[in-house]
């Protein structure tokens, strides 16, 4: 375990949450997009937790000098996948991309779902920032100990 583990772990949380927010924003922005007649597919982020694989951790494990076992490394985005949802059909016979019956295929982006995701992602981000602030406070009180 290295000294700044707690901060690094929170930082991975911030990165992952920010990626989620980027993807949510992209879904909203592409709610009407299509690429050469193929409607945009909403994207989703796949998260997975990571173990600690820092140099210090490997070294202290190998030497058996680590103060505590540490298999915590935070979270990472392991992939961004297209959601497997059917396109929605919108009746618009005047559109150039309408089919024989006058329907146009549009992306199945649900604005309400995306906005709800955005709220929960923003909450996660805030929680990580709060944890970071507490950790920072802990480090600075350690520094004050040295000043005494």
């Amino acid at each position: 375990m290295s000294f700044f583990d707690a901060l690094n772990v929170s930082a991975t949380g911030l990165t992952a949450t920010r990626t989620e927010m980027d993807v949510t924003a992209e879904n909203l922005a592409n709610a009407q997009s299509s690429n050469n007649g193929t409607p945009y597919k909403p994207q989703a982020v796949v998260l997975s937790s990571i173990g600690s694989n820092s140099f210090q951790q490997e070294l202290s494990d190998a030497m058996g000098t680590g103060s505590s076992p540490s298999d915590v490394g935070g979270v990472e985005v392991s992939g961004i996948v297209s959601e497997n949802v059917p396109n929605q059909l919108v009746y618009d016979p005047t559109s150039p991309s309408a089919n024989a019956k006058g329907y146009v295929e549009e992306p199945d982006v649900q604005p309400v779902t995306e906005m709800t995701n955005l709220i929960s992602e923003s909450d996660s981000y805030q929680a990580d920032v709060t944890a970071m602030a507490t950790t920072k406070q802990m480090y600075s009180s350690t520094l004050e100990l040295l000043q005494a």
Binding site: A6, G13, E20, S48, S49, V75, M132
Partner: peptide
């Protein structure tokens, strides 16, 4: 203090993985 800092790392990890 060591234990508390270790606990902080674990808790930060829990929070970072709140959606995993």
């Amino acid at each position: 203090m060591n234990g508390s800092m270790y606990r902080q790392t674990l808790l930060a990890n829990d929070l970072a993985n709140a959606d995993t």
